[in-house]
Design a protein around this nucleic acid. Structure first.
Lengths: 162, 162
DNA sequence: ATGCACCTTCCTATGGTGGGAAGGTCAAGC
DNA sequence: GCTTGACCTTCCCACCATAGGAAGGTGCAT
């Protein structure tokens, strides 16, 4: 579209991806190395903005960098079968669902414990008792953390493949 | 309860917390430094197993280490008001709920995109189009990751306080 | 005394992001 | 021309919780 070259700060502004992350994406090879001005500044054009917006959207939907890598290459491939894209999407939906279920289970357990806690100045507390006695439904050990709203303690069942 | 001293491997087995993590928890001060045998081996008793089980339970419910630190000190405090425990639990429930809602929104958006994708050999694909054109409901930038089922790309709104 | 299971510490990686230091560049104003 | 301030560069560190592995010491049973 426009051939007006931009510096990284401007692409960051218009794409919604921070300059920091743009450099990072370049470093890990998610986006191609940018052209450089005589003094070494990265130089971008309208095309790059589209790619970065694509990435931002995909991150916003919870896709991992690996998955986005795959999506980007499908996006660029004019001959891609839409089945491949859909398969990626459906797989990700399942991951989301699994994590949702896990967190809902945690939430439910906590709500049950909290429901029986007086919540006053008295020291006896079913929540602490529950934590001490192991009255939880599944969810054995905590695992890692992906990109989304920075978590805080997540337990998982499946040893993520990363 | 029993005064039989255990090595780290055994406590790990009976508490469900890996030896690796027990050392880590000790290093970050979540659990007190263990006594050592003459040759430098860590030595544990039944009491420590309870603490570790407590931690494992709390992690399983998605509490962060910081939160567990607070829970542990309340647990050890015979005079704690149960209101403090309940407040922690309710706050965590809200965090869980927020993350659940975020992921449900992602899932919904993805399902809508996927629903219109043929998923055959043809290259045209509403999913890629959606990613390219930014048709998502909110969820601007991805954030960090809590402990729960290792995520994969999570977006968040609130810049976690860590 | 040999072997094996266990322990020790220390370093590295994961995933995605932010913060900041130390220094170079560019354009505008004086 | 020179200063100022906004921008850019690279490089390192932190987060959070966990796993893996290397290099070396210990404990016990054969």
């Amino acid at each position: 579209m426009d051939g007006i070259p931009m510096n990284i700060g401007e692409v960051a502004r218009v794409s919604g991806v921070s300059a920091k992350m743009i450099r990072h994406y370049e470093a890990i090879g998610l986006v191609p190395r940018a052209r450089r001005s005589g003094s070494g500044y990265r130089t971008y054009a309208g095309n790059d903005v589209h790619t970065l917006r694509f990435i931002r959207q995909a991150r916003g939907l919870g896709f991992s960098i690996k998955q986005i890598e795959a999506l980007l290459s499908l996006w660029r491939d004019q001959r891609r079968p839409s089945s491949k894209v859909k398969a990626l999407a459906l797989a990700h939906i399942e991951e989301l669902e699994a994590r949702i279920l896990e967190m809902q289970a945690m939430k439910r357990t906590l709500q049950q414990l909290a429901a029986h806690c007086h919540g006053d100045e008295r020291p006896d507390c079913p929540i602490l008792d529950g934590l001490a006695s192991g009255a939880n439904a599944s969810s054995p050990h905590a695992v890692a953390g992906h990109p989304m709203s920075h978590d805080h303690a997540r337990t998982s069942t499946k040893p993520r493949r990363h």
